[in-house]
Structure formats: structure tokens, C-alpha cells
Design a protein around this nucleic acid. Structure first.
Length: 355
DNA sequence: TAGACGTGGAC
DNA sequence: TGTCCAAGTCT
């Protein structure tokens, strides 16, 4: 009996949400294709990344690497260059590795089955379900941050979404709610779209929600306070000094070590950690023995997970006429393919070094 | 399994 | 200005 009542409620929910989605869905470029490759790239770019940002990268990346084969053949540096500024660069490396596996083991095609997809580098349960449901309408659930939030409110879930129990409940709900017929891809996207446009993290617009009358959190007046926020770790302050060294039309960049914990192998403006907010280490550059710091140009603040980073960009000049170590290079903007620059380097170069 | 991984935008 | 966070995955 419970099953019967439940599926009735589910049917009402599906109908209302799908009707809303047909009308409210954004016309995003990756929604115009059913090509698993393009969808895979979009889903990977969208991980922890805003739609507005991906809008600029996705068409460019597909133009540069139009299919699995071109991506598999590309050098890591070329792929990173196309990814430059997007962040989470492990995604780009994984894409290339996975493309190689697709060519070697899957006939150059994205796998048709969940297990095959999950075997690919950088493809987890969300991405596998998203690509297969959207490209082929396979009956696979997805749970991303949007779906987690929508379900947490709709069903007044108390668990932290990231907890093991919370995850288990979310995925089993997502599975249960999948439409028996119709289009699972459409349904999954409708759920995510609701989270992105209406059931937002802060101040959800319940007045516009097509399923507000079915929402438990709404009925309890708790829509805005669910899901419970995850406790944040305290952040560490880091101070960086960044050198802006020019010669002719080129700017000096330095390649980060391949074994760096972050931004490995990417080019950045020469950067040293010079201390914290409370103390500076002025000898940092004399250790390098190459530069004379000059005037201050600008400050850049950003955060990487637990680090709150404050960077001071200075116009500087070389202190030696000797050749530079191999990790240094002169970067000339305007190369068609671009370079594998970090986001901050890209930003500073785009501004011409000035604030 | 928490914690790491980049970036830009909203408030 | 500081904080939170956006279509996750990996270790």
C-alpha cells in the first residue's frame, strides 16, 4: 500500500517538475547535443564550476579537441592550455587519460554501460549517470549538489548530504524517483535545473517553485535552513610575492614542478611564498638570486580550500645577465592555442600587469 | 574518510 | 572585506 501511495505522489512530483522544466530550462549549448563526448566534457567542466564560466570554455575546448581521438592524441600541455583558468586541473589530465583508454579499449566511444564509464579516470557516479542518462536516456540517477539540496528540502532530510548515510539516502531517492517511462535524462536535468534556478542555497524562491506544495521543508518553514551547512575547517593565511618581469613584448613565466601538490606543471609568474600576514621573509628572492623586486603593482586575493592567499604582484627586473634555468620561459601572448597558465597568471597577463 | 583541489561571483 | 559556494573525484 505504501508503495502505491508513494508512487502516486511521485507521479505528481514528476509531472509538475517536468512541466516546469520544459518551460524554464536554459538554452545551454551542451543541451543541444546528444553526443556523449560533448556531454562528458561539459559534465566534467561543470564540476564545482559555474555555468557562466563553462559557457566560455566548452565551445573552445570542443573546437580544439572535437572528438575522443583528437583529445587522446593531444599533449598534456595542450589540454592544460585549453583548460587554463578553469581550475581543478586534475580534471583536464583525467580527461586526456580517459580519452586514451577510450581509444585503446572502447573503440573510441564513451562506454554504454555504467561499469565501463566508472572505470574511466575522473568519472565518478555522478558524471557516469549524467552522461549516460542525458546522451542515451539510460535509466541512471544523478546526485549533485543541486539534487542533494532539492531532496534535502523536499523530504526534510536531516542528514548532512556529504555523510555516508546522507549519500546513501540521496542516491536511493534519486533512483526511486526516476521516471518509469519518459526520459531519465530530462528528469535528471530538471532536478538540477530546479536547484540551480529556484531551490537555491540561499533564499530559495519557493513562490516560483513548481513543487512547493509537496515540499516538506517548506511546510515546516525550514526551506532556507536545509540542508544543514557543513562545518568548515579554519583557513590558513599565506602571503605570496609575484614578479612581473618583461622583456620586449614577453613576460617571464616559471613552470611549476610536476610533483607540486597543486597547479603542477602549469606556468605562473615567478612566485615565492614570502610569509604570512604577521611576518615577511624578505630573503625569499635572494635565494633565487635572479630578481630585484621593484614597485608594487597590485594585490590579488584568493583562496584555495584551506588557504587564504594574498598575492602582491610587483614589477621587477632580472638581477643577472646569465641564462635562466630551464623552468623559466618568456611568454608572448597571442599564441592561438594559448599556454598552460595558472588562472592568476592569466589574469595578471590579461590586465597587462596593471590593476 | 576527511581533506585537497582553482576560480570567480554574489552578498 | 570576508565568507560561501558551483553540474565531484580521488586518496
Amino acid at each position: 500500500m505504501a508503495t502505491r501511495a508513494e508512487s502516486g505522489a511521485h507521479a505528481v512530483l514528476r509531472k509538475a517538475l517536468l512541466a516546469w522544466y520544459r518551460d524554464a530550462r536554459r538554452d545551454l549549448p551542451w543541451r543541444r547535443t546528444r553526443d556523449p563526448y560533448g556531454i562528458w566534457i561539459s559534465e566534467t567542466m561543470l564540476q564545482q564550476t559555474r555555468v557562466e564560466t563553462v559557457l566560455a570554455y566548452w565551445p573552445r575546448f570542443l573546437a580544439r579537441f572535437p572528438d575522443v581521438e583528437s583529445l587522446a592524441r593531444a599533449s598534456e600541455e595542450d589540454v592544460l592550455a585549453a583548460w587554463s583558468g578553469l581550475g581543478y586541473y586534475r580534471r583536464a589530465r583525467a580527461l586526456r587519460v580517459a580519452a586514451g583508454a577510450l581509444v585503446e579499449q572502447h573503440g573510441g566511444r564513451f562506454p554504454r554501460d555504467l561499469q565501463g564509464a566508472l572505470g574511466l579516470a575522473g568519472v565518478g557516479r555522478y558524471t557516469a549517470g549524467a552522461v549516460l542518462s542525458i546522451a542515451h536516456d539510460d535509466r541512471l540517477p544523478v546526485v549533485d549538489g543541486n539534487v542533494a539540496r532539492v531532496f534535502s528540502r523536499l523530504f526534510a532530510l536531516e542528514d548532512l548530504p556529504q555523510s555516508p548515510g546522507g549519500q546513501r539516502r540521496l542516491w536511493s531517492l534519486a533512483e526511486e524517483l526516476l521516471p518509469p517511462g519518459g526520459s531519465p535524462g530530462e528528469w535528471n536535468q530538471a532536478l538540477m535545473e530546479l536547484g540551480a534556478l529556484v531551490c537555491t542555497p540561499r533564499e530559495p524562491t519557493c513562490g516560483q517553485c513548481p513543487v512547493a506544495r509537496l515540499c516538506l521543508a517548506r511546510a515546516q518553514g525550514r526551506a532556507a535552513s536545509l540542508p544543514r551547512p557543513k562545518p568548515r575547517p579554519t583557513t590558513l593565511d599565506v602571503r605570496l610575492e609575484v614578479l612581473w618581469v618583461r622583456r620586449g613584448g614577453a613576460t617571464l613565466v616559471e613552470r611549476r614542478p610536476d610533483d607540486a601538490s597543486r597547479l603542477a606543471g602549469l606556468f605562473e609568474l615567478p612566485t615565492r611564498e614570502t610569509g604570512t600576514r604577521s611576518g615577511l621573509f624578505p630573503e625569499a628572492w635572494s635565494v633565487a638570486g635572479l630578481f630585484l623586486p621593484g614597485e608594487e603593482l597590485l594585490r590579488v586575493r584568493h583562496a584555495i580550500t584551506r588557504h587564504r592567499i594574498e598575492a602582491v604582484v610587483r614589477a621587477a627586473r632580472l638581477a643577472t645577465g646569465r641564462g635562466l634555468p630551464g623552468r623559466f620561459a618568456w611568454h608572448r601572448p597571442g599564441a592561438p592555442e594559448g599556454a598552460a597558465l595558472t588562472g592568476m597568471a592569466k589574469k595578471v597577463l590579461a590586465r597587462g600587469g596593471a590593476a
